[in-house]
Design a protein around this nucleic acid. Sequence first.
DNA 1: CGTACCTATGCAACTCGTTGCACTGCACCT
DNA 2: AGGTGCAGTGCAACGAGTTGCATAGGTACG
Lengths: 180, 180
Amino acid sequence: MALEHAILVSLTERAGSGYELARRFDRSIGYFWPATHQQIYRVLRRMDEAGWVKHTEIAQEGRPDKKVYRVAAAGQAELTRWLAEPEDPAVLRDGLGVKLRGASLGSLDVVFKEIERHRAEHATRLEVYRSIQKRDFPKPATLRGRDLHQYLVLRGGIRAEESFTAWCDEVIEALRKDNR
Amino acid sequence: MALEHAILVSLTERAGSGYELARRFDRSIGYFWPATHQQIYRVLRRMDEAGWVKHTEIAQEGRPDKKVYRVAAAGQAELTRWLAEPEDPAVLRDGLGVKLRGASLGSLDVVFKEIERHRAEHATRLEVYRSIQKRDFPKPATLRGRDLHQYLVLRGGIRAEESFTAWCDEVIEALRKDNR
DNA sequence: CGTACCTATGCAACTCGTTGCACTGCACCT
DNA sequence: AGGTGCAGTGCAACGAGTTGCATAGGTACG
């Protein structure tokens, strides 16, 4: 499993509260490992009990108190252990493929529209990632170490969305031809 | 959710037992929706209770009896309903991205080897998909209807694995340069 | 003034997915 | 004779992920 480890990576870079972590997941590590605030809170508590992280309660004016978590020695050790452990390569899991496969059993037209909709969503995500690339990594060739790794992760997100949109385009074109 | 629907699609094409379905998932629909036999058995029972499918027990010589499932009217209706329903676009979820992001916190060398390993696995899957394409769809331009859809689903699997391997190559090259 | 959204944490209930195991019987290899 | 692998079904327990809701004060909009 890896949500624990994704959190450890994020917390090692910078300490933070559960809420902040949830925001960060929305914007960066979440491209490769999406998580909701619920999951994050639950896992943080478990990691706290296991001694992987420690928290400090911070009182705030006009806002709810927050618990800022930082990685403890046991957490650092666990992260190193996990990094050295082999991981199963990711598998694709996309309901759109199932729909396409079953398209002739329902309304082909509806499925076609659904594919166009997904195409648009993936293209939007792609644009978001590309603008992050432009903003945060204008000169990729100069990157080293941690910054380089972060850039490469973003590249993975970009490639995945490029691949999705290109596939949608191929499907759309083929279905159009078939319908003529 | 979609395992129910993936099973309905598969059963509409051809009736079969839970075991057979599990094999089919390994070889075709599973490129887009992996499932183990455990999941499949459990869902089949639930769908049977809901009246989406019906089963006939078939006694066999020298082998355990099997239950062959076929789609009932309610199942066909449910499938049509689901096909018309919008689906959330798929999100990437790959632990390798998390590892790369945290590479500098452990042994870079170990993570590098892990990426090479994933690269090899994705390349193997890609080869498998390509040989299926050659064998089952030698002339894509002539395909229509259901066969075309099945081909396009396979194309999605191929594109995804191409994208994964290309990303691994990009990462490997960048990490090599960084290490010089 | 009401509505809605942001920060911040959390419970409860549920579904989905994974892992390990159990039982039967045949075929094949060593 | 013993191990492995295939065909076939299934339970039990657990872990992961989702959804709806609750609380509470602050800001921003119309």
